[in-house]
């Protein structure tokens, strides 16, 4: 019995079409698109509820002001006074990643809805990372022209060392969008696989019966509670890290060392 039920932790990341089919037209309304719309609606509701400009703010307005103030202070400490011009983009990715990560953890399966973590797809995180990277490139070349390439040459390096350092700096610069995207989607996938595997242990332990089975289920269930708490932390940290690294890269482009 227990040997037949094979754990398939990758099934939850599959995208299924809701309208149209996947091999036909390139414009298909998928589960991923549906969850992105849900995220958009949630962020819109959150922002609309708090943007009131009341002199004595209510709870909701304090929450919204807290989030915007947090991203704003992060940008101004890492970029400087000019960082506020990039606030729309950094705030957008921070809110999108945070909402998507937390929404993917919600136990909607209790009411029969299969939650889908949008940020567990490399296409989504890759597009966001490429957009951050192009903002860095455009800003750098716009403000400094070809002087932007001095980013690869640290000040006061001897010539012999420059031959070594410039290629290393160039590679570490070019690998940035890849590392930015990979960090987010792998962290999400790893957490969901961990939860899925241990949730399977609970079910299989109950199915096995006897004395040992339910005991193993109980241990796995307690473990899942701890892992879920850790996952909520990871969701917030990953959103913070993505926004923080984006603002650091923007700082490189604006201030050139």
């Amino acid at each position: 019995m227990a040997a037949e039920t094979r754990i398939d932790p990758m099934h939850q990341f599959q995208i299924s079409p809701l309208l149209g089919n996947l091999d036909g037209s390139p414009f298909v309304f998928t589960t991923s698109a549906l969850w992105m719309l849900v995220i958009l609606a949630l962020i819109w509701l959150f922002m609309m509820g708090g943007m009131k400009r009341a002199l004595v703010p209510g709870r909701w307005q304090v929450a919204v002001e807290g989030v915007t103030g947090f991203v704003d202070s992060m940008l101004s400490t890492s970029v400087g006074p000019e960082g506020r011009r990039f606030l729309p983009w950094v705030f957008t990715i921070f809110m999108f990643i945070l909402t998507a990560n937390l929404l993917g953890l919600m136990p909607f399966a209790l009411v029969g809805v299969h939650p889908f973590t949008v940020t567990s797809q490399f296409t989504i995180t890759g597009v966001m990372a490429i957009m951050s990277f192009s903002i860095v490139l455009i800003t750098g070349f716009w403000r400094h022209g070809f002087h932007f390439f001095s980013l690869f040459v640290p000040h006061g390096t001897p010539f012999a060392l420059k031959l070594l350092i410039v290629p290393i700096e160039f590679i570490s610069f070019m690998v940035r969008p890849f590392s930015l995207a990979t960090r987010l989607f792998v962290a999400m996938i790893a957490g969901h696989i961990l939860v899925e595997v241990f949730a399977n242990f609970v079910v299989q332990g109950l199915n096995a019966g006897g004395l040992v089975g339910p005991g193993i289920s109980l241990v796995a269930f307690i473990f899942i509670i701890g892992v879920m708490a850790l996952e909520v932390l990871v969701c917030a940290i990953q959103a913070y890290v993505f926004a923080l690294l984006t603002s650091l890269y923007i700082n490189d482009a604006v201030n050139l060392h």
Binding site: M74, S179, T182, I237, V241
Partner: peptide, 15 residues
């Protein structure tokens, strides 16, 4: 901020 940069760099290799 530096703490989380170091964390991100170390975590990336594990991922």
């Amino acid at each position: 901020g530096r703490l989380f940069i170091g964390f991100a760099a170390a975590e990336l290799l594990g991922l």
